[in-house]
């Protein structure tokens, strides 16, 4: 387990360095930020001074090297626009995004797995068909459109829910959180549902497919032949088996929900990292873009590691490290 963790850490570092290089190349190619940063009336001398101040006059590889050296000591550069460390800018906004993503995932899991089970156990019933039809809608309706419709219905026409911002927050361990106050919850409801919709549909389909396959297995019939109550057959024998692929997908989707909450955050003016990223791209704020992507990559790496550990807990046949498999 320890050897596995160490090897995993080494692989992760390699991925991070590779990713940083690719991002650096990409960002380097999209334009010169100085054009946007200095006063349009500024003369050539002023431009050169600004370029030098940002370190943009040096060759590409040297810029990358300087970045790497900084990154090794936890400094991912300063934002060109705000002139504060890029990392702290992101970490400031990250809790809002993570909160949104988590609540969305909780909604998706809490509804998706039970609905998928029902649809898988009764595939030909009206309820089962209804759930599947709903999941097709969840899959195919564009997020931004659903977001706008939600605002139209619940904010504009019914006036039940606020349409933008985080609302009141309560501070937990120095981090402001919306879900702890009634006003915050009201603000959180629509963006979280909006973000959850696609993942919910995905989990319904995944759970349904797994359930339909599992109920045909002999071990389910054997469990029933033991005279176990239906609840235990489904809740333990079926669920624990189908949970293995579901946990994998939940892990991957959690990462992608955090990384790509951009559309939802824009529609509901949620002050998270998605909005920050869009602003930074528009302003060619290179350090923020690079830092953002590296934070996301780190997040993915951590989530994948957690998923692998969960996997080995769910499935006794999986032993981390790959060696010593018994038969």
């Amino acid at each position: 387990m320890l050897a596995y963790a160490i090897r995993r850490l080494g692989q992760s570092l390699f991925v991070l360095v590779l990713m940083s290089f690719l991002v650096f190349v990409g960002v380097y190619a999209i334009g010169n930020p100085v054009e946007l940063l200095v006063n349009p009336q500024a003369d050539e001398v002023e431009r050169l001074r600004a370029t030098a101040a940002l370190g943009l006059d040096r060759p590409f590889l040297e810029q990358y090297w300087v970045f790497l050296k900084g990154a090794a000591s936890g400094d991912l550069g300063r934002s060109f626009v705000y002139n504060v460390p890029a990392l702290s800018l992101i970490l400031d906004k990250l809790p809002a995004t993570i909160e949104l993503a988590f609540v969305a995932m909780v909604i998706a899991i809490a509804l998706g797995i039970p609905l998928g089970l029902v649809a898988g156990l009764k595939p030909d019933s009206l309820v089962g068909r209804g759930i599947m039809a709903g999941s097709i809608l969840g899959f195919s309706l564009p997020t931004f459109w659903v977001g706008l419709v939600l605002i139209m219905v619940f904010s504009v026409q019914l006036g039940w829910l606020p349409s933008n911002g985080r609302g009141d927050t309560a501070t937990v361990a120095g981090v402001p959180m919306s879900f702890l106050t009634a006003d915050g919850l009201a603000h959180l409801a629509m963006p979280a549902v909006n973000l959850a919709l696609f993942k919910l549909s995905l989990l319904i389909r995944l759970t349904r497919a797994g359930t339909r396959e599992a109920v045909l297995q002999d071990y389910v019939k054997f469990a029933r032949a033991k005279g176990l109550p239906q609840g235990r057959v489904i809740g333990v024998h079926v669920l624990k088996n189908i949970l293995i692929p579901i946990v994998t997908v939940i892990g991957l989707e959690l990462g992608s929900v955090i990384a790509f909450a951009i559309v939802t955050e824009s529609i509901f003016a949620w002050p998270g990292t998605g909005k920050l990223l869009i602003d930074s791209i528009n302003q060619l704020d290179r350090p923020v873009i690079v830092a953002y992507l590296l934070v996301i990559v780190t997040l993915f790496i951590v989530i994948n590691f957690v998923v692998d550990v969960l996997y080995s807990m769910l499935d006794p046949r999986v032993r981390l490290g790959g060696a010593g498999a018994s038969h």
């Binding site: 032949a225 293995i244 006794p316 046949r317």
Partner: peptide, 14 residues
Amino acid sequence: MIFQDPMMTLNPVL
């Protein structure tokens, strides 16, 4: 009841 294929009748994750 006992079933035909012992590789399939026991739940692999319990």
